[in-house]
Amino acid sequence: MRLSAPIYHLKRKAKRLSREQGIPLHDALDRIATAEGFPAWSMLAAKAAAATPANRLFPQFRPGDLVLVGARPGQGKTLMSIELAVEAMKAGHRAAFFSLEYTERDVLNRFRAIGANPAEFDQLFEVDCSDAISADYVVKQMAAAPRGTVVVIDYLQLLDQRRENPDLTVQVRALKSFARDKGLIVVFISQIDRSYDPSIKPCPDLDDVRLPNPFDLKLFDKTCFINDAEVQFRVAS
């Protein structure tokens, strides 16, 4: 199944249609579903839930992996990372989301945006929005995390903001070593430079990652870049 846009974009489109035409939201959702080739929204949602990019990508991750998820704003990099965490928890693993960008409420709202109920994962998921987040902080908080835990860090570039923190390469190397020692999967959300031009290539890549300071991108084992409905996954050579 290939939708014209990610499902959360389609939901936004339906809400806009509902407001503009004064129709119930469920009718607007069904109209969007019809345009995508489904008789009803419920069938589109069920099909999408069974075939998300995260559903396909997560089985390719291995304990110890360092993963980069990159996209321009509004393209779904945060939602993709949360979907990966949900896939881990469906498989019985734990997940943690460290954010220097969002509040806990923001993160939980993004669960709902992908059709997941955070209450289902109450004992498996934790959110940490401390201003002190750094590599050392994450290592300390995750010291007792079991093998297979997915750790999402939102986002890469913000680790480089505080002058008292080591430079970004030092921090990512520390997290890479920690992930391998503990058997964790660490997912970094990343900004993409404004110079990225989707008319030249369908998805950004490592060359488009925004880097205020020099950083060794070869530290990542796997990458996932997103633009519109396009998702490109690569394993480092």
Rank of each mutant, 00 (worst) to 15 (best):
M1K: 04
L3R: 01
S4Q: 06
A5C: 03
P6C: 02
L10H: 00
K13E: 04
R16V: 11
L17D: 01
S18L: 00
Q21L: 14
G22H: 07
G22L: 01
D27W: 06
D27E: 14
A28C: 10
L29N: 04
L29V: 07
T34L: 12
T34C: 08
W41A: 13
M43L: 15
M43G: 02
K47Y: 06
A51S: 12
P53G: 04
A54N: 04
R62W: 09
P63F: 11
R72P: 00
R72Q: 08
R72I: 06
T78N: 04
I82E: 14
M89G: 11
A91D: 13
R94V: 04
Y102E: 15
T103R: 02
N109K: 13
R112E: 14
A113F: 07
P118V: 03
A119M: 14
F121C: 01
Q123Y: 08
F125T: 08
V127W: 03
D128Q: 12
S130W: 10
I133N: 08
I133P: 04
I133W: 08
A135D: 12
Y137L: 00
V138A: 02
V139W: 02
K140G: 09
G148F: 09
T149C: 07
T149S: 06
V150I: 15
V152E: 00
L158R: 07
E164I: 02
N165G: 09
P166A: 12
P166M: 11
L168R: 08
L168D: 05
V170M: 12
Q171S: 06
V172Q: 14
K176T: 12
K176N: 10
S177I: 07
F178C: 06
A179M: 10
A179Y: 06
G183T: 07
I189M: 10
Q191V: 09
D193L: 09
S195V: 11
S195R: 12
S195W: 05
P198G: 05
I200Q: 10
P202T: 09
C203Y: 01
D207S: 03
D208I: 00
V209W: 01
R210M: 04
F215A: 01
L219V: 10
F220S: 11
E230I: 04
V235F: 13
A236Y: 15
